[in-house]
Design a binder for these strands. Structure first.
Lengths: 210, 210
DNA sequence: CCTTCAATGTTGCCAGTGTCAACATAGATT
DNA sequence: AATCTATGTTGACACTGGCAACATTGAAGG
């Protein structure tokens, strides 16, 4: 006869959790949101889920792998936001601006998560193929938009990869400075984004070419 | 009679080090360069200097304070590089480009150090007045250059603070993507910097205004 | 010169961390 | 019903940052 119900928090099953991997990911993300990456502790995650501290090792190689999975999910969410903004706003010139706003907003709304993705916590070198694929996917959304606007004659006909990387660096830099609290005093994120896209367009738009 | 010479590694004095604060900073920076921030250990630093593991607490409040000092020095070095490029190249239009190149080069040459400065390890919120001052100083070098070029009629007459922040976000974004290994495959840092400044200028230069 | 004292460095100790090895249990397969 | 594999647990270990108490030094003041 089994001891007591000994029910875990999540699932009705007692010993086997059923979907622990998913639960671990969600819990890790919750902690990251509230306390930042530093607050993530394998023991704490286990305790919150009513599970042992090493249960995690049946689903992730180590702590780094867990954070890599969190980063992977971050790239996926980011891509969804970007594509949504692009499609919703009509895949045109204003949609490109909306993409930029959505990008920066994602970082500002999820600063700790964004830092897990880009803060050097996990590197895209060789290992973690899923992470690399998802990263490429997010970037591809931007490249596609750029290529589309080039095709419509809105943007100049430079190498779309270079052009997309250029704009990516810009929004990434804005996002990073913003979540690091490094923006000079009277400058707000919204103001900076608005101004940056204004200046960016003047350099990118075909009409600006003499 | 004193035991033995018991000489530490640095100074001829035995018990008192003489300039331990400086030595701690240098050693921390050396470790950061080689192993990254994760490799920094109070015990290891102490051992390398032939000093106890807690000797550090007579010169820094805690580990965070040590890293904040490293970041402060990083800002100082960065500002020196920027000013040097600006002055050496003649304070003109090409000098601005040289500043950008120097900025990205600093990050690429000292990736781990750069991440200590901007990676959210230490925040510029309230505490650490020296860090904030040095951060402001580095940014001011950029603002001064922008204002100078505006005065000479090379750049458009927008708010210099906004314009400077815009260019800063761009080089910061390039630097971050580069040291994170996130640049898409065939794009090199040098190529991206060159292209970005080309595009940036077309947006910034007064001549580009219809 | 001798005493006193603040600055600086040391040792003992603690809670907390990631991770491994050995073991326990459950659910699926035969 | 017996067996096997996936999944979860317990016990241990080395390592970390940090505190309290103690030790040593060089300088200041009589």
């Amino acid at each position: 006869m089994p001891r007591t119900t000994r029910a875990a928090r999540k699932s009705p099953r007692s010993y086997h959790h059923g979907n622990l991997r998913r639960a671990l990911l969600d819990e890790a993300l919750t902690i990251i949101r509230v306390e930042g990456v530093e607050g993530v502790t394998l023991r704490d995650i286990g305790a919150r889920l009513g599970v042992s501290r090493t249960a995690l090792y049946r689903h992730f190689a180590d702590k780094r792998a867990l954070l890599a999975a969190v980063a992977t999910e971050g790239f996926r969410m980011l891509r969804q936001q970007l594509v949504a903004a692009w499609e919703t706003e009509g895949r045109g010139d204003p949609a490109f601006h909306a993409m930029g706003v959505a990008y920066v907003r994602f970082a500002v709304d999820n600063p700790a998560h964004y830092r897990v993705i880009f803060g050097g916590v996990v590197e895209p070198g060789g290992k973690e193929p899923e992470l690399e694929a998802e990263a490429r996917g997010a970037f591809q959304a931007l490249v596609d938009a750029v290529a589309s606007l080039q095709h419509d004659g809105v943007f100049i006909g430079d190498d779309p990869l270079l052009l997309a990387t250029y704009t990516w660096a810009l929004v990434h830099g804005i996002a990073m400075l913003a979540i690091d609290g490094q923006l000079p005093d009277p400058v707000s994120v919204e103001e900076l984004v608005r101004y940056s896209f204004q200046r960016l367009r003047t350099g990118i738009l075909n009409a600006a070419r003499a």
